[in-house]
Amino acid sequence: MNIFRLAGDMTHLLSIIVLLLKIQATKSCAGVSLKTQELYAVVFVTRYLDLFYSFISLYNTVMKIIFLLTAFTIIWYMRKHKVVCQTYDKEQDTFRVLFLIVPCFVLALLVNHEMSVTEVLWTFSIYLEAVAILPQLVLLQRTKNVDNLTGNYIFMLGSYRALYLVNWVYRYFTELGYRQWIVWVSGTVQTCVYLDFFYYYVQAWRNNERMKLPG
């Protein structure tokens, strides 16, 4: 495990923890897209099916379980917590997730390493993760205003993706025969999805003001 990969994982973990703490502390999930959170739950469930039949390391297993548990905890807060669920912007969070799920699944059936149930579902999770943030970005565009914590959450998720890109370059040059085209292409697409958001985030940070997205 190299430093970029570890930093990427930690940034990913931190982004989720920050979101969860924000929801717990403020008893509010205003500005958070439940659709995106549910897509991440689908991503984790379909990708980490290998928990049942493959062991890589204790680190790997623990992180997978944390990602699964935190994803479902956030969803539970947004759907079931009697105070938090009332702050959910249901009318604004209207992204049609099937427009993401169906194409990703079809693509996973067409482009994969092996035509088996677990392999297709794993590939599907890779494709879906690349676009899972879109409902959140659309919700931000609609509400036109990004509070600091929601902004930080997306910024950290973007940083995690960027660190993974560096990790892949590092591994390509240090590990013989290391290549994974499906992961690389989707990861690059995913990082690009964040670039537009990064531009406005950095601009707001430089001007030292609350972040506002263009109409």
């Binding site: 990969r5 290998d50 493959s54 790997n60 997978k64 990602f67 025969g177 994974q180």
Partner: peptide, 10 residues
């Protein structure tokens, strides 16, 4: 497996 290697990334 990714092309014969274990999926060690998260």
């Amino acid at each position: 497996l990714i092309g014969g290697r274990k999926k060690d990334e998260l």
